[in-house]
């Protein structure tokens, strides 16, 4: 095992040693004018300079300057989200404290007595539904979509993901999956020496971490409405 894992390293070392020795030492022997050597190095240096300027200006990539979320922060988010969800499942909706943010809300006039929640979806979309019984009958179902942070490898994608579609038709509240979001991105880093002092992952603890973001739908229903389907009753604290 050790041998196999060392082999590529050794091969690279040998390769570099070979090239380094050849490219440098051959200058001693081969007939080459000193001027040419200076040209090669000079041209390369200018090329990289131009490349640096271009990569800063002409290709304005999605820059995530100082938005990179550390691993610690990410797992804090993860824990906070799970804690709230778990608590809610047990019947208590704690203070959201910014862990979840309301992405969208709806108001549906409703005069029926029974409400069926249908969150069956062909796209395999599932969101927790929490229901709070309002103290009075005001004939309005208030629905809200809350989302926790989606962090993939330190980048916040919460904004990318949309809310589900919710509508109330007769006595059925349907939850339809939001549009599919497919994020395909390329990530650059200057290298471990640059990561070491900028609060990014250091070279040895680099792991691809992410929080996929929990979400839930909070329904506030009039006092007399009976709800059935897949949901939890909660009391807000």
């Amino acid at each position: 095992m050790v041998l196999i894992s060392l082999l590529p390293i050794l091969i690279v070392i040998l390769l570099v040693a070979g090239i380094g020795t050849y490219a440098f030492k051959s200058n001693k022997k081969r007939h080459r004018t000193p001027k040419k050597m200076k040209w090669v190095v000079g041209v390369y240096f200018i090329l990289t300079l131009v490349a640096a300027v271009l990569s800063y200006t002409v290709f304005p990539a999605e820059k995530t300057e100082s938005k990179v979320i550390s691993k610690e922060k990410t797992s804090q988010h993860d824990e906070a989200q799970s804690k709230i969800i778990n608590s809610a499942i047990n019947g208590k909706l704690p203070n959201l404290n910014g862990v979840f943010t309301k992405k969208e809300s709806w108001n549906f006039p409703f005069n029926g007595k029974d409400l069926k929640i249908s969150n069956k979806d062909e796209q395999d979309y599932y969101a927790n539904v929490f229901v709070i019984s309002k103290p009075k009958d005001d004939g309005v179902i208030e629905a809200a979509h809350y989302m926790g942070k989606i962090i993939i490898d330190g980048v916040d994608f919460t904004e990318r993901k949309g809310s589900p579609h919710i509508n109330v038709n007769e006595s059925i509240l349907r939850i339809k999956a939001p549009e599919l979001v497919d994020v395909n991105f390329t990530r650059f880093s200057e290298g471990f020496a640059f990561d070491q002092f900028t609060g990014r992952q250091s070279m040895f603890s680099r792991s691809y971490f992410s929080v996929h973001g929990n979400e839930f739908i909070l329904l506030k229903v009039p006092k007399s409405v009976r709800v059935n389907g897949d949901f939890n009753y909660v009391n807000a604290e």
Binding site: Q123, Y126, I152, F157, L180, N184, F185, T186, R187, S189
Partner: peptide
């Protein structure tokens, strides 16, 4: 669910 991602890393 409805969110998928692919990341390519270059360092």
């Amino acid at each position: 669910g409805t969110f998928s991602y692919d990341v390519n890393y270059y360092t």
